[in-house]
Simulated assay, not measured.
Amino acid sequence: MTGTSVDAVEHVSYAVADQTATVTLNRPEARNGYTVRMSDELAEAFDTADADPAVRVVVLTGEGRDFCVGADLSAGGLDLQDPADPEWNEPAGRCSLRVFAMNKPVIAAVRGAAVGAGSTIILSADFRLASTDARFGFVFSRRGLYPEGASTWFLPRLVGLGRAMDWMVSGRVFDAAEALSAGLVTSLHDPDEVLSEAYALARDLIRNTAPVSTAVIRQMLYRMSPLDSPLPVQRLDSRLIADSMTSPDAAEGIMSFLQRRDPQWTGEVPRDLPHYLPW
């Protein structure tokens, strides 16, 4: 990647190059053990990427040989402040729900251990690329804890209720091959290549997909697919498709296809998102 600028915070680093933002869990000495500070810095990094029209795709990864081994319990537990406060949000959800709300694709590039928070914060990503040595685990039942990050909502939508029940109730750790076969991860790669494969995917998305269309499609899949009727979805489809008749990106998409060339998108996110989206 070229033109990289890096903003290093305490537990997360943020870099932008080639229209791709890289958000990196940056506590390799602690195997990227998850902390409250990390959760807040992750949310801030995704805020920054979502608001920046120069960023088209976000890659989420971890520094070192592990993505994230879960909550850092070395100091006796997370600083939860006052969990009785009705406005308090548990730390994994601060990341996973911010990723859920993104208007830009998020690619998780995972190697080594991705356990506890390391598994839950990637569930709302659009793609999860993993190394062949990756290990996953929703280990909460084995710690006397409860699932976090709205993972009991996300996980069954990815792998089905039966597999989610297996992994979450047993709390067992499982390997990358099982994660791939169940649909938790998109593809497997050599540990030294998983990040470069994530960037290759980012380049493909940037070159070939319209940013506004991608943002709307991403949110429609998450927010409309759980509805109990297709009727409101089709009503939104109708308005979006009617509007696309005057959309410069729609015209460009068709012309670039007919002329067998790469498209040159002019729509920007968040500037050009339809104002009537129900969310």
Results as ranks from 00 to 15, higher is better:
residue 1 M to A: 13
residue 8 A to N: 10
residue 10 E to F: 10
residue 11 H to G: 06
residue 11 H to C: 15
residue 14 Y to E: 01
residue 18 D to G: 13
residue 24 T to V: 12
residue 27 R to D: 07
residue 27 R to N: 14
residue 29 E to M: 08
residue 29 E to D: 15
residue 31 R to Y: 11
residue 39 S to L: 03
residue 45 A to P: 08
residue 56 R to V: 03
residue 59 V to W: 00
residue 64 G to R: 01
residue 67 F to T: 04
residue 68 C to W: 03
residue 75 A to W: 09
residue 80 L to Y: 12
residue 83 P to H: 04
residue 84 A to M: 10
residue 86 P to K: 10
residue 89 N to V: 13
residue 107 I to D: 00
residue 107 I to A: 01
residue 108 A to I: 00
residue 108 A to F: 00
residue 109 A to D: 00
residue 117 A to F: 12
residue 124 S to P: 11
residue 126 D to M: 09
residue 126 D to Q: 14
residue 127 F to T: 08
residue 128 R to I: 15
residue 129 L to K: 03
residue 129 L to P: 03
residue 134 A to R: 02
residue 138 F to T: 07
residue 140 F to C: 14
residue 140 F to H: 06
residue 143 R to F: 11
residue 144 G to E: 04
residue 146 Y to R: 12
residue 148 E to A: 14
residue 158 L to V: 11
residue 160 G to I: 04
residue 160 G to C: 04
residue 162 G to A: 15
residue 163 R to K: 14
residue 164 A to S: 15
residue 164 A to G: 10
residue 167 W to E: 05
residue 169 V to E: 15
residue 170 S to I: 09
residue 175 D to H: 12
residue 178 E to R: 09
residue 181 S to Q: 12
residue 185 V to I: 13
residue 199 Y to P: 03
residue 199 Y to V: 07
residue 203 R to S: 14
residue 210 A to M: 11
residue 211 P to L: 07
residue 213 S to M: 08
residue 216 V to K: 04
residue 216 V to R: 04
residue 217 I to S: 10
residue 219 Q to G: 08
residue 225 S to V: 07
residue 226 P to N: 06
residue 229 S to V: 05
residue 230 P to N: 01
residue 231 L to D: 11
residue 232 P to R: 00
residue 233 V to K: 03
residue 238 S to C: 06
residue 240 L to G: 00
residue 244 S to K: 05
residue 244 S to T: 11
residue 245 M to Q: 08
residue 256 S to D: 02
residue 261 R to Y: 02
residue 261 R to E: 03
residue 262 D to H: 13
residue 267 G to F: 02
residue 270 P to C: 09
residue 270 P to N: 04
residue 275 H to A: 14
residue 275 H to L: 11
residue 276 Y to R: 07
residue 276 Y to P: 11
residue 276 Y to S: 12
residue 279 W to Q: 01
residue 279 W to C: 05
